[in-house]
Every structure is written in structure tokens, then in C-alpha cells.
């Protein structure tokens, strides 16, 4: 039971990392990034290509791939997302959705639909004794790294000047601008950072999950449910909901396997009825 709960948290780390990136982007830009799953997939493929073509190991990929994709994300924001931002939000909705399909198909064209091989890093091949039970080392690592990553983002947002600006720009962009802060300058790096987080989750997933063009599309639907439950644009809410949903689906699989397919969505519907802005969201977040 404890082990199952722990296990749910590991699954939840992917939700949390992805939801965090989505929340940061939505908060700052008001853009629902439907290509987020595709960036997660590109992260995993980036790790595969780095190993396959350049012989770069997991650790190098973990740093390099998110960096490169983050830069690509920033460029994308400059070239496209920014131009569409003043229009109806539907334009960016359609743009990112189309982008996701294009990225998926490009990868499929090159690598086919079958999964690509990716081994676990040798350092983490064993198991760790956690006192109450032993657990695969790699999964403990995934949980720890995701938790640290989320904590770092949290600290940056709440304790630093950059974080204060970003949060202010998220909530009251006009007022922030009136105070003499160039909000536009921060939009690009924030978008890039959100994309980098997705890529980071992708690299983490490569050794333990199937690396194929559809891996992101399959996962992102649940992540959207997570973000909605946590409260759109709420950074803390999305992380908390990410881990919570991981936990709930693990225990759901265990006790009511028949419902496991739809449990997350039942939960989402219930939360929306009870708190339309999500658990940690505020009504005014919807501008």
C-alpha cells in the first residue's frame, strides 16, 4: 500500500513537471500550449538521438536537450506565438495544436511508430532500500529530481526579483507595465523555460517509458486534466494536483481497475462543479 502510494508519486512527477510548464506559460502569456506533449516527446527523442547518433549519455542529455528545446521554444514564441497573442486566444490554440501534429508526424516520418530503444543509466540500474520497501533506483531518482525542480521553480517565483516580476506580470500585466517594467522582455524566456521543462520530463521518461511519436499525445490529455484540477495558471496548484493525480490513479488502478481509464476525468468534473476555477485557481485568473 505504502509502496503503491510511493509509486503513484513517481507517476505524478511527470504530471507535475508537465503541468508546471503549462501553468507558467498560461500564467504569463495566457496561451494554452497544446504542443506541450509534443515537446515532451521531442525531449525523449532528443535523448535517444543524442545517444544513438552522438554517443552522449543520459546525464549530458538531461542538461543539453532541455536547453536546446528551450531555445527552440523561445524562437517559436518570438516568431509565431507573439504575433498571434493579441488576437483571439483561439488562434494560438489552433497554432499550437497544429504544431503538435506537425512535430509528431515529422518524427513519425523519420522513425516510424515503433518505440526506440533507450537504456537506463548504469549508475541507477539497481534498487534502493527505502526502509519499508526496496524500490528501483531510477524511479527514486525521477521523484527526487522532479520534486527538487518544482521546489526550485517555486522558490524562484516567490523569493527572487525575477519571480516577483513574472508573478506581477502574470496577474496584472498592464499595472506592471505602468510601474516601468518591460513585461514583453520576460515573455520569451518564460515560454522557453516552460518548453524546457517539458523536454526535461521527456528525457527523464526515456529510460522507463516507450519512446515513440505518440507518447506525448497520450499523456498530455491527462496533464490538461491535472492543470484544470489544480487551477489554470496556478503554479502551486498544478504541481500539487500533478502529484495528487499520480497518487489517485495508482490507488485507483489498485482498487477499482475498471474505473482507471476515466477516474482522472471524473475527478476533474467533480472539481469543476465544486470550484470552477480549480482547487488553487482564482476566478480572476481568467481574463
Amino acid at each position: 500500500m505504502l509502496q503503491q502510494a510511493f509509486n503513484g508519486l513517481v507517476g505524478g512527477s511527470f504530471y507535475a513537471l508537465l503541468a508546471l510548464g503549462l501553468a507558467v506559460i498560461f500564467g504569463m502569456l495566457g496561451v494554452v500550449n497544446l504542443a506541450h506533449g509534443a515537446f515532451y516527446m521531442l525531449g525523449a527523442f532528443g535523448a535517444f538521438i543524442a545517444l544513438d547518433a552522438f554517443g552522449l549519455n543520459f546525464w549530458v542529455s538531461l542538461a543539453l536537450v532541455p536547453l536546446l528545446l528551450g531555445v527552440a521554444g523561445a524562437v517559436l514564441e518570438r516568431l509565431f506565438v507573439r504575433r498571434l497573442a493579441p488576437l483571439d486566444p483561439l488562434y494560438n490554440f489552433l497554432f499550437t495544436f497544429g504544431l503538435a501534429l506537425i512535430l509528431q508526424d515529422l518524427v513519425r516520418r523519420e522513425y516510424g511508430v515503433n518505440s526506440q530503444p533507450y537504456p537506463r543509466p548504469r549508475e541507477l540500474a539497481g534498487t534502493v532500500d527505502l526502509g519499508l520497501f526496496t524500490y528501483p533506483a531510477y524511479q527514486v531518482f525521477v521523484l527526487a529530481v522532479s520534486a527538487v525542480m518544482c521546489a526550485v521553480v517555486w522558490v524562484v517565483l516567490t523569493r527572487t526579483r525575477v519571480g516577483v516580476i513574472v508573478r506581477a506580470a502574470t496577474e496584472r500585466p498592464e499595472l506592471t507595465r505602468a510601474l516601468g517594467i518591460d513585461v514583453g522582455r520576460w515573455v520569451t524566456p518564460v515560454f522557453g523555460f516552460g518548453v524546457a521543462l517539458a523536454a526535461f520530463a521527456g528525457v527523464l521518461a526515456a529510460p522507463m517509458r516507450a519512446v515513440n511519436p505518440l507518447m506525448g499525445a497520450d499523456l498530455i490529455i491527462t496533464v490538461f486534466a491535472v492543470v484544470v484540477i489544480g487551477g489554470l495558471g496556478s503554479v502551486f496548484g498544478s504541481v500539487a494536483a500533478g502529484f495528487a493525480i499520480g497518487l489517485v490513479s495508482a490507488l485507483g488502478n489498485l482498487y477499482v481497475p475498471a474505473l482507471s481509464q476515466i477516474l482522472v476525468f471524473i475527478l476533474m468534473a467533480a472539481v469543476l462543479l465544486w470550484r470552477p476555477a480549480g482547487l488553487f485557481g482564482r476566478e480572476e485568473a481568467f481574463r
Binding site: N7, G8, R209, D218, S249, A250, P257, A258, Q261
Partner: peptide, 16 residues
Amino acid sequence: DPTPFPNDNFSTFLLK
């Protein structure tokens, strides 16, 4: 046990 489809996390079933 039936599992969700598609699914990327089978840990519950494997641990059980």
C-alpha cells in the same frame, strides 16, 4: 486486470 489504453504507467499492476 484491465489496464487503461493507451497507458504509460503499469507500476500499480506490477507491484501488485
